[in-house]
């Protein structure tokens, strides 16, 4: 099951890369987070780690639902342009995305025999893909979504590679995430003030 969710996680990310509409991007982000949360729930069932449960639920609620909603509100509030064409040509993107996946497997190749290590390569791949998301958009919102996707990739790595980070750290990360949102809001506000 974990495999499936992670697969879906990756496919939402790739789809997000090819999206040209802002609200659709928020949706993909939400779905991405939800699949991540579900994968985390699966992991929880496997490892029976309370901390993982909490972070899975937080992910589902906060990242899967609250953040996309908030962003939509922001976008409405600040009248953001909703058409966000990617800067990288589709022809290149088609080559680039598989290439990244191949590269990450090549990178992890020396330790691939260890259990669960293919997830590491997947999360590095999603890190790179979210970087591509940041690269290919000029719009600030898309960049922020890219950054959040990156956060998800981090979470994926923490969850699969280390079988759960220490609770405290997870909470710290969430706290910082919220802080980031506050700052983003402030930035927008000042800009429009």
């Amino acid at each position: 099951m974990t495999n499936l969710f992670i697969g879906l996680f990756l496919s939402t990310l790739i789809t997000a890369l090819l999206t040209t509409r802002l609200y659709r991007l928020f949706l993909w982000y939400g779905l991405n987070s939800i699949f991540l949360g579900l994968a985390a729930l699966e992991q929880y069932k496997l490892l029976d780690d309370k901390a993982l449960l909490i972070s899975a639920l937080l992910t589902l609620l906060l990242k899967g639902l609250l953040l996309p909603y908030l962003f939509k509100l922001f976008a409405l509030k600040f009248h953001t342009e909703r058409n966000i064409p990617p800067k990288i040509r589709l022809q290149y993107a088609i080559l680039l995305i598989p290439a990244i996946l191949v590269f990450t497997f090549y990178l992890i190749n020396p330790i691939l025999h260890l259990p669960g290590k293919n997830y590491i390569s997947l999360s590095i791949a999603s890190l790179f893909l979210s970087l591509v998301l940041i690269i290919e958009h000029k719009a600030i919102f898309a960049k922020v979504i890219g950054f959040l996707m990156m956060e998800n990739a981090l979470f994926l790595l923490g969850m699969t590679a280390t079988e759960g980070m220490p609770m405290l750290i997870e909470l710290g990360i969430f706290f910082d995430l919220l802080m980031a949102v506050v700052v983003i809001n402030l930035l927008f506000e000042v800009e429009h003030a």
Partner: peptide, 17 residues
Amino acid sequence: YAAIIFNLTLSVLFGYR
């Protein structure tokens, strides 16, 4: 900047590999 970081990370990882 993001693109530069992308390439930077790529080359460093590649180099390490």
